[in-house]
């Protein structure tokens, strides 16, 4: 076989290998660079809870035409948990919210839900909430800067938000993030 033509026929392969090797090096360099963790931080941390009236639910989870009163929790650490019966991750976090409610009071805010469904949800998974507020329009969630349900906030003695967790409150998060905050604030 003619060597000259062999070199010619190998040339595309050689050039291609060159490009691949350099691209590989570039990618390797890119991978070494640390990537920033994408954390959902809330604008509200360190600020007072949003000044918006929340309708309180009665025992049948209907609107009882009373506003939810946060005064009761003055000088106390408490939690606010946004939930809905249609939200599957809320079922996942239910037992952990139950645990949380044994340490500090938890206020539940039910997001865009039907009273009957909420009632059934609380009957099935237990009712950990000290009080329940209703957010049928989604307005309260917007004021609180809620990304989605479930979402949990911790509010300190001065009525300031000190912690926010978007997504289900899983056990490891509860243990590693929520418990230390509660301890240091007690």
């Amino acid at each position: 076989m003619n060597t000259k033509s062999l070199v010619l026929r190998l040339l595309p392969l050689i050039l291609f290998s060159f490009i691949i090797i350099v691209s590989g090096l570039v990618l390797y360099e890119l991978k070494k660079k640390p990537t920033k963790k994408n954390l959902l931080t809330s604008q509200l941390i360190g600020k007072k809870i949003p000044d918006i009236k929340i309708q309180e639910a009665d025992n049948n989870l209907e609107n009882n035409n009373k506003n939810l009163n946060f005064k009761k929790y003055k000088n106390k650490l408490f939690a606010v948990n946004f939930f809905a019966s249609w939200c599957a991750p809320c079922r996942v976090e239910a037992p952990i919210v139950e645990d949380l409610s044994k340490i500090i009071p938890v206020i539940g805010i039910v997001y865009k839900d039907k009273p009957n469904n909420t009632k059934k949800f609380l009957d099935d998974f237990g009712n950990p909430y000290d009080k329940i507020g209703i957010d049928n329009s989604g307005k309260i969630a917007i004021e609180w800067g809620v990304y989605g349900v479930p979402e949990t906030f911790l509010i300190n003695e001065e009525g300031k938000i000190i912690y926010r967790h978007a997504g289900p409150l899983l056990y490891n998060i509860f243990k590693s993030e929520v418990l230390p905050i509660i301890k240091s604030n007690k």
Partner: peptide, 20 residues
């Protein structure tokens, strides 16, 4: 990127070897 690089190696490198 690594995955696409592998796709390129298989689908271009192979034919180029065949070509040679």
């Amino acid at each position: 990127g690594v995955f696409i690089l592998i796709i390129m190696i298989i689908s271009i490198g192979g034919p180029l070897i065949l070509y040679a």
